[in-house]
Amino acid sequence: MQIKIENLSYVYSPRTPFEKTALKDISFTVNEGDTMGIVGATGSGKSTLSRHLNALIRIQSGRIMLGDADLSQRKVDLKAVRKKVGMLFQFPEYQLFADTVRKDVAFGPMNFGINDAEASAAAAEALSLVGLDIAEVGDKSPFELSGGQMRRVAIAGVIASKPEVLVLDEPTAGLDPAGKREILELVKKLKSSFVKTVIIVSHNMDEIAEYCNRVAVLDEGRLIADTTPDGLFNHSDVVDNTELDYPHTVKIKRKLAKRGFVVDSPALNVEQLTEGILGRLAE
C-alpha cells in the first residue's frame, strides 16, 4: 500500500489570534516496503505530520491517499484507517492500562471488532513476534514487567491488529544501547511479516542512517529534503543549515576527510565506514 501525501498543510487554532502553522504544503510519497525516517528539530511539525497518517488529526487542506482510501474525505472510515496504520507513541509503555498483558495486547484487535478468541490468538501472535511468550507473561500485570519488556508489550499492542504500515515516534527513547538495538532489530524483523512499510520519527541520526532507506527532513513545517540517508548526510548541506546532526560514523568520515583521508563509502554505520577505510588503505 502506497501512502501519497499531497500539498498537506495544517494550522492549529485557525482564524484566531493563536493561529500557529504546523505544516506548510507538504508532498511526498511513501512506497510499500520503505523504511522512511522523518527528522527535524523539535517543533518542526514531525508529530503533526505523523498523526495525520492514521487520521488522529483531521486534514485541513491537502490530501493523503492511503492506498485507495482518501483521508481527506469526510466519510472516511476511521477504524479501517487506524487498523491499517499502526502508531507507536513515544514511551509507549506509559499507555499500558489493562490488568493482564494478554488483555492489553488484545485491546486493539477487540476495538477493531473481532471476537474474543480471535483477539486472544492475535495477542499471542503479536507477543511472540516481539519475543515474548504469552504462556509466560500473558497473565501477568504489565506493570510487573521490566522497562524493556513493557515496551515490547506496548509494541505488541500496536501490531496485534496486523497493520500494514507502522509509524513509530522515537521508538528507542530512554532505552539503554542493548535495548535500543533490540527494538530496532525487532522493527527490521517485523518488516518480513504483515508490516510492509515503516515510518520512524526520530532525533537519533545514527538510527535513521542505519535503519532507513529514505529520509524526509522537516524544518518549520516545510519539507526541505526527501532523499536517502546517503543523499542527506553525504551529498547535501541540509544538515549544516538546520539543527540536525550527522550520524556519528559520518562525523568520523568528515574528520578523516579534513585530514586528507577521503573515504569512498556512505559511512552510515560502523561496518560501512570500516570497509571504506580498509578500501582506501588497500589502494
Partner: peptide
C-alpha cells in the same frame, strides 16, 4: 492528550 491519541490509534473511541 497523548494517552487519548495513543488509545484512539488502537481503535478506541
Amino acid at each position: 492528550d497523548k494517552i487519548m491519541m495513543a488509545q484512539k490509534a488502537r481503535g478506541a473511541s
